[in-house]
């Protein structure tokens, strides 16, 4: 589409012209940039710890340099591939299943015409988000125990044999995904509910007069209307694929299902932070960040190419 191209045209203007024309905008940007420079970029010198055998008592200047030693330790660790795979699968499921669900949930909410019902459902659906992870995980562990209600239900339906579902590596991904949706669906759809609100009512009216059905209007008006928000969120999500909610896994997993439940953050927690190995955990963090950044840039580029929507 040609509409997305004006930025391309302005590229041809010189920096001088750009600054002269937009100096007001740049002035506006100064405080924001300054803020991020101090509070976000300021501490980033700490990333050099990734290349050090960091000892708190010696500080960053005094600690020994180990080059890529910390990274190599991580790549060579016996569980490296397991935790990388688990991290990708768990956050990938969150992306490919969870994300469409939250958009869908927002659309479904929008279809409700009873105002009090709509308000109530919205309020209620975000409640589990506030229940602490420890309480939630306690409930999940109870439900999935060999006598728990979920197990009872599944046994009655003939889906599983009687067992503790959390002691079987095969079920962890499903348990984690479903419980994640239970706790976060309402909360994560708020963004989209708000975006739908901004879609112009006039367009809907016009389409309705033209005889477009509900489904058609959702497809041709609502969805394109919230596309910028959906794409933004999707790209940002791709930039967090290497990050999995740490508290939840830590509270839910157990040693007998490490093979599917252990993720990078929990693994580093056990090996690094517990032993005060700051260099090592910084290295793993940096590795994660780099992969995340690559994923985000790729998602952004893909999105730019196919949907003319991008973060930059």
């Amino acid at each position: 589409m040609k509409a997305a191209k004006p930025s391309g045209r302005s590229d041809r203007s010189t920096w001088g012209m750009d600054i002269r024309r937009n100096y007001k905008l740049y002035l506006l940007a100064v405080p924001v940039v300054l803020f991020f420079a101090i509070f976000n970029y300021g501490p980033m010198f700490g990333l050099v710890m990734a290349f050090q055998d960091f000892k708190p008592t010696r500080g960053i200047l005094g600690s020994a340099w180990v080059g890529f030693g910390n990274f190599i330790d991580f790549f060579k660790s016996p569980n490296f591939f397991t935790v990388i795979r688990n991290t990708f699968v768990i956050s990938g499921l969150g992306l490919f299943v969870g994300f469409p669900l939250s958009v869908g949930f927002a659309l479904l909410i929008n279809e409700i015409r009873l105002k009090w019902f709509k308000k109530t459902v919205q309020t209620i659906s975000y409640m589990p988000y506030f229940v602490s992870v420890i309480v939630m995980c306690g409930l999940i562990i109870d439900f999935c125990s060999s006598q728990g209600i979920v197990t009872n239900l599944l046994v009655r339906l003939g889906i599983v044999e009687r067992q503790n579902l959390l002691q079987n590596p095969d079920y962890f991904w499903a348990i984690n995904l479903i419980s994640d949706q239970w706790q976060n669906l309402g909360y994560s759809s708020i963004v989209f509910i708000a975006a739908i609100t901004n879609v112009s009512g006039e367009l809907h009216e016009a389409a309705a007069i033209d005889g477009a059905g509900r489904l058609k209007r959702v497809w041709h008006i609502t969805l394109p209307g919230i596309k910028p928000m959906v794409v933004t969120m999707l790209i940002l999500k791709c930039g967090t694929l290497m990050t999995v909610g740490f508290d939840k896994i830590l509270n839910l997993y157990n040693t007998s299902i490490y093979s599917t439940a252990d993720v990078i953050s929990t693994y580093v927690y056990r090996t690094g932070i517990n032993g005060g190995q700051y260099g090592y955990s910084t290295a793993v963090g940096l590795f994660n960040s780099v992969v995340n950044l690559i994923l985000l840039l790729a998602a952004n580029a893909l999105s730019k190419k196919y949907s003319e929507q991008a973060l930059f």
Partner: peptide, 25 residues
């Protein structure tokens, strides 16, 4: 759209979402 520095600014901000120096720094 007319801002030339827009892309750079976006990356500048996005990086802060991914990278952090950690507790001690």
């Amino acid at each position: 759209r007319e801002l030339k520095l827009k892309g750079l600014l976006a990356i500048f901000l996005l990086i802060t979402m991914m990278f952090g120096g950690g507790m001690i720094p």
